[in-house]
Amino acid sequence: MTDIIGYILIIIGILFDIFGCIGLVRFPDVYNRLQASTKCVTLGTIMLLVGVAVISGLGAISAKAVICAVFILITSPTAAHAIAKGAYASGVALWEKSVVDKYAEEEEK
């Protein structure tokens, strides 16, 4: 039974990873791509790790998997934030169809 739950979690995780990568290819600019990659890949990878933990049961492997999941949950949004800020600072423009850019307005003041 735990095996089945674990495999279902792993399959859902891989699906989210795939959709995240499709979003990464299809979205038009850095910021939208970051949205796809951080959200889908974070949840997908966490589900993969939780699935592994469920299958292997209490032990060395599941402890490592859960710790990795927690670290990914903490570091991935921070990394995305750093990339977005770095991209903006180095002058990567938003997609031309973007509706509003308060950040640029603030810089001009």
Binding site: G20, F27, L94, V99
Partner: peptide, 15 residues
Amino acid sequence: RALHPKMPIKPGIVK
């Protein structure tokens, strides 16, 4: 949004 053929996104930076 990633799979929709027309890609219904309306991005921007808000404060």
